[in-house]
Computed example of a mutant assay.
Amino acid sequence: MGENVLGSSRQNQWRVSAQVIDMRRPEQPVRAVKLGTRDRSVIFDLQSTAIIVVDMQNDFCHPDGWLGHIGVDVTPARAPIAPLQALLPALRAAEVPVIWLNWGNRADKLNLSPALLHVYNPYGTGVGLGDPLPVSGAPVLQAGSWAAEVVDELMPNDTDIRVNKYRMSGFHDSELDSILRNLNVTTLLFAGVNVDQCVLCTLQEANFRGYDCLLLEDCSATTSPDYCRDATLYNVQQCFGFVVNAAELQQQLESNI
């Protein structure tokens, strides 16, 4: 009998046979990238990097989605679409995992507390989590619905990874951390909306868990007032990671592929 591989990720596998269990992970060559931040430069290894794209889905970014229904101008939330269209193919070509982190609640809402439901439907009379949208009829932020799907302009690739989240932090009560550890990821690139809410909460928790965090400023946006974005960028650079530029990253990726 020959040797067999156990493990869903090439970065985290055992090799086993009837005689031996080999737990050594294969060594990967370092692929260094250097980007400017707001005060210095940062160097990281593409080999242990993934990008997390947060909430670029219809309910937040489409005029007929949830935010549009309640009167929010979703134009700012669509700002990351073009830079992500340019960056993601270069990341895929460099074999950097692309993770789509979207709100995707259970249809029965059994994972959602009354306190969480109240945030989005404070009087119980509006269109809240799981309620049908007036235009499409899609249930708000429900897994498998049009409302929770990535916008058409950013159609995920077959090799991309999808993770549902149920809070502003994508780590709470989800499989995100297990997936990242299986991929042997230590550095996370963050993009998406809203940068001052779900992106920030996920980035903060990643920092708390020991990941190195890089916020792609030109691939992140918010429908909140400008001061919310400004404060977020300041606090990320000051406390939780570094603020970098996707266009600079894309240039380096394309020059090295």
Rank of each mutant, 00 (worst) to 15 (best):
M1P: 05
E3N: 00
E3K: 00
E3M: 12
G7P: 06
S8M: 03
R10I: 12
Q11L: 04
N12V: 01
V16T: 11
V16K: 01
P26K: 03
V33L: 09
Q47N: 14
Q47D: 10
Q47M: 03
T49Q: 04
D55K: 09
D59S: 15
D59V: 07
F60S: 13
P63E: 15
D64P: 00
G68M: 09
H69N: 13
I70R: 15
A77D: 12
I81D: 03
L84K: 12
A86K: 14
A90G: 01
L91I: 08
A93W: 01
G104E: 03
G104D: 02
N105A: 11
R106T: 06
R106D: 14
K109L: 15
L110M: 09
S113M: 03
A115M: 08
L117T: 04
V119H: 08
N121K: 12
G126S: 15
G128L: 07
P132M: 07
V135Y: 02
G137E: 12
G137K: 09
P139I: 07
G144K: 06
G144W: 06
D152C: 01
D152T: 11
L154Q: 12
L154F: 09
P156M: 12
S169W: 01
S169I: 10
S174G: 05
S174W: 06
D177C: 10
S178R: 15
S178V: 13
S178D: 10
L180I: 08
N182G: 15
L183A: 10
T187Q: 08
L188R: 11
L189K: 13
A191F: 00
V193P: 04
N194E: 13
V195A: 13
T202L: 14
D212A: 14
E217T: 13
S224Q: 13
R229Y: 06
T232H: 07
V236N: 03
G241S: 07
A247M: 03
E248A: 15
Q252M: 10
L253V: 02
S255P: 00
I257T: 10
I257A: 13
I257M: 14
